[in-house]
Amino acid sequence: MSSSLRLVPVTSDNVEAACALSVRPDQSELVQPVAWSLAQAYTTPDIAWPRLIADGETLVGFVMAFINVQFAPGTPDDPFRSGLWRLNIDSGQQGRGYGRFAVEAVNDELRGRGSTRTTVTYVPGAHGPEEFYRKLGFRPTGELSGDQVVAERELAQPA
């Protein structure tokens, strides 16, 4: 993994390249395309935090966090949560540590905003990302969000 990895905002200069990013065909049913995510970010700017994953000058993926959302609004014991909303690593760039970098960068952002845990949802199944998230410390909560598994991870505060 390169030391020039960083998250960059989506701008008018890179939005076309962002929308050209695509996951492997066997993953296309597991995550929405980047263009869909950007439309959601545009319509929910109060909770969405979209970023591109860059390695040097090359865009290798897209990540979007959600900030302070209730999964079941109106339920008295439903806490506000923050976490990973989308992760798309371009099909030709997978297996190089970019996903791990993006998840940890989102966790750093959330930690900086005062979060003590992070949440992710994912579609279960043979080609799904469950094992990837387990390796990063996420554990299923037993909840579902629609047809997706809800998993959480504690965020240790920096020393």
Rank of each mutant, 00 (worst) to 15 (best):
Q40N: 08
Q40A: 11
Q40V: 12
A41N: 04
A41D: 08
Y42V: 02
Y42R: 08
T43W: 13
T43L: 15
T43A: 14
T44D: 04
T44I: 02
P45H: 09
P45T: 11
P45L: 13
P45N: 09
P45Y: 14
D46F: 07
I47F: 08
I47G: 00
I47S: 08
I47K: 03
I47L: 08
W49H: 12
W49F: 15
P50E: 10
R51F: 05
R51D: 00
L52V: 12
L52A: 09
L52P: 01
I53C: 05
A54T: 03
A54Q: 10
D55L: 08
D55T: 07
D55G: 07
D55S: 15
D55A: 15
G56N: 08
E57Y: 05
E57Q: 09
T58C: 12
L59A: 10
L59T: 10
L59K: 02
V60F: 10
G61N: 02
F62K: 02
F62G: 01
F62V: 06
F62S: 03
F62P: 00
V63W: 06
V63G: 04
A65I: 04
A65M: 06
A65Y: 01
F66H: 10
F66W: 04
I67A: 03
I67N: 07
N68A: 15
V69I: 14
V69H: 02
V69R: 07
Q70F: 09
Q70M: 14
F71L: 15
A72N: 11
A72T: 12
A72C: 12
P73D: 08
P73L: 13
G74T: 12
P76K: 06
D77F: 14
D77V: 14
D77G: 01
D78Q: 04
D78N: 09
P79C: 13
P79N: 11
F80L: 13
F80Q: 05
F80D: 01
F80M: 09
R81A: 07
R81G: 01
S82G: 10
S82Q: 03
S82W: 05
S82N: 06
S82I: 08
S82Y: 05
G83Q: 03
G83Y: 05
L84D: 00
W85P: 00
W85N: 08
W85L: 05
R86G: 00
R86E: 07
R86D: 06
R86N: 12
L87P: 00
L87K: 01
N88L: 15
N88F: 02
N88V: 15
N88G: 01
